[in-house]
Computed example of a mutant assay.
Amino acid sequence: MGLGSTAKKIQGLSDRAEAMYKQVQKLQQRITNLEGEVDDTHDTVERIDHQLSEQRQLLLAIAEEQGIDGEQILAEAAIDEAELDDEESTATDDTATDTVDTEPSETTAE
Rank of each mutant, 00 (worst) to 15 (best):
E54F: 01
E81G: 01
S89V: 00
A78W: 06
L59Y: 12
L58D: 06
I79M: 07
A91L: 14
Q66N: 13
T99W: 05
D69G: 02
E76D: 13
L60H: 04
T95K: 10
R56Q: 10
I79V: 12
T97H: 11
I68D: 04
L58F: 12
D86W: 09
E87M: 11
D93W: 15
A96Y: 02
A63L: 10
G70H: 04
G70V: 05
E81F: 10
A61C: 01
A96L: 14
Q66T: 00
L74N: 03
E87W: 08
T99D: 00
E71R: 14
Q55N: 10
G70Y: 04
E71G: 03
D69M: 03
L74R: 08
Q66R: 15
D80K: 14
E71W: 08
T92Y: 00
D69Q: 12
L84R: 11
A77V: 09
I62P: 02
A77E: 13
Q55I: 06
G67W: 04
L59D: 12
D69V: 02
E54S: 03
D86S: 12
A77L: 15
D93E: 13
E88Q: 10
D93R: 14
I79H: 10
E54T: 04
E87P: 00
A77S: 12
E88G: 01
G70M: 10
E83P: 01
L58A: 07
D86P: 00
E76H: 06
A61Y: 02
A77N: 13
T97C: 00
T92S: 05
L59G: 01
S89I: 01
A91I: 05
I62V: 13
E83A: 08
I79D: 11
E65K: 11
L74A: 05
A96F: 03
E71P: 02
L84Y: 09
E71L: 11
Q72D: 08
I62F: 03
A61R: 12
E81D: 09
Q72M: 08
Q55V: 08
I73S: 04
I79A: 09
A63Y: 06
D86Q: 14
D80Q: 11
D69K: 11
Q55K: 15
L59R: 07
R56K: 15
I62S: 05
A77T: 11
L60M: 09
I62C: 03
T90Q: 14
A82K: 15
E65H: 04
D85W: 05
E76S: 09
R56V: 10
G70Q: 11
L60D: 04
G67F: 04
E65T: 03
E54W: 00
D93F: 13
E76G: 02
L60F: 01
T92C: 00
T97V: 06
A63C: 07
L60N: 05
L60C: 01
G67N: 05
